[in-house]
């Protein structure tokens, strides 16, 4: 199978006009952009919770464990997207429960799930009949291969996340801010924590197609972390993180398109750069205020 962008690789370094021109003419590029925006919405809303609750390591563990589910889906012939979804939610519940139950060993346990899940995935994929699996697109994503059906699924996941956040944002906020007080106010802390992790799992599935499960943690946490440096409420953080995510995706896609670089890696690098710049500007501003 020829990947769509392969035919453009001979064009040499592209510029912005070329990208825009291609964007007007090619459905796959429009799909890619739309997919990027849908993913930005999910990680813009969920990312701030991950950042303020300081669970990005745990989320990384869930993301990597998803490969186990993808591998099994290939081996048994299930749809890989469904496999990823089920695996993500199961991994979220399992890792969440384990981290609540054995808090002191949380660090080690997450590491075990992280590597163990990946190992399971690799073993199953190696034994999958035919072995025609594009493993790389799961590990590093391929935003240019997003189909119309994928877009519909992504929009559906976004809708679920948004509705849950709208209905329960006070409980999520309370669980992130002060678990003990939330429990005293009659909030089911364990249930809401696990529900939050399940929503993180949905976000991860949204993002796997865009940047792949290895790099997914960057796009969940970096735009939200940048937003957290500039605004002082969770709602504003969500809004800004969504916009930042969209900008990062668009510019990463544009930058990678001309020279035919891997889009996922470019997007992640742009967001890391944004975080670095934001920290730098903040540091300079702080020094100027103090001096």
């Amino acid at each position: 199978m020829v990947t769509p962008y392969a035919s453009f690789s001979t064009r040499g370094t592209g510029d912005v006009m070329e990208f825009l021109h291609a964007l007007m003419n090619f459905t796959f590029l429009q799909n890619a952009l739309l997919g990027g925006f849908l993913a930005s919405l999910g990680c813009g809303v969920i990312g701030p919770y991950v950042v303020v609750k300081r669970i990005s390591y745990l989320v990384g563990g869930i993301a990597h464990a998803v490969l186990g589910g993808v591998g099994m889906a290939y081996y048994f012939g299930w749809p890989p997207f469904g496999g990823a979804l089920v695996a993500a939610v199961l991994a979220a519940l399992l890792i969440g429960w384990v981290s609540l139950r054995w808090r002191l060993q949380e660090d080690m346990l997450i590491g075990a799930f992280w590597a163990g899940g990946m190992a399971v995935g690799i073993l199953f994929i190696s034994r999958a009949p035919g072995y025609n699996v594009d493993l790389m697109s799961y590990l590093f994503g391929n935003i240019l291969l997003i189909t119309r059906d994928d877009l519909l699924l992504m929009a559906g996941l976004d809708a679920v996340i948004l509705v849950l956040v709208l209905v329960f944002h006070r409980q999520f906020q309370a669980v992130c801010f002060d678990e003990q007080f939330a429990r005293l106010r009659g909030v089911g802390v364990t249930q809401f924590y696990l529900l939050l992790l399940c929503m993180v799992a949905l976000t991860l599935v949204l993002l796997i197609q865009v940047v792949g499960l290895i790099l997914v943690i960057a796009l969940v946490s970096l735009p939200a972390a940048v937003a957290g440096q500039w605004v002082r409420s969770l709602g504003a953080m969500m809004l800004l993180a969504t916009v930042l995510g969209a900008v990062v995706t668009l510019s990463g896609l544009g930058l990678s398109y001309g020279p035919d670089l891997p889009s996922g890696a470019t997007i992640v690098l742009v967001s890391a750069l944004a975080y670095f710049l934001s920290t730098l500007v903040l540091g300079i501003r702080k020094r100027r205020v103090q001096g």
């Binding site: 701030p48 303020v52 906020q173 992130c176 801010f177 957290g228 605004v231 002082r232 409420s233 969770l234 504003a236 953080m237």
Partner: peptide, 8 residues
């Protein structure tokens, strides 16, 4: 934590 006094 990004929250206002009123929010707490």
């Amino acid at each position: 934590f990004p929250i206002s006094v009123g929010g707490v």
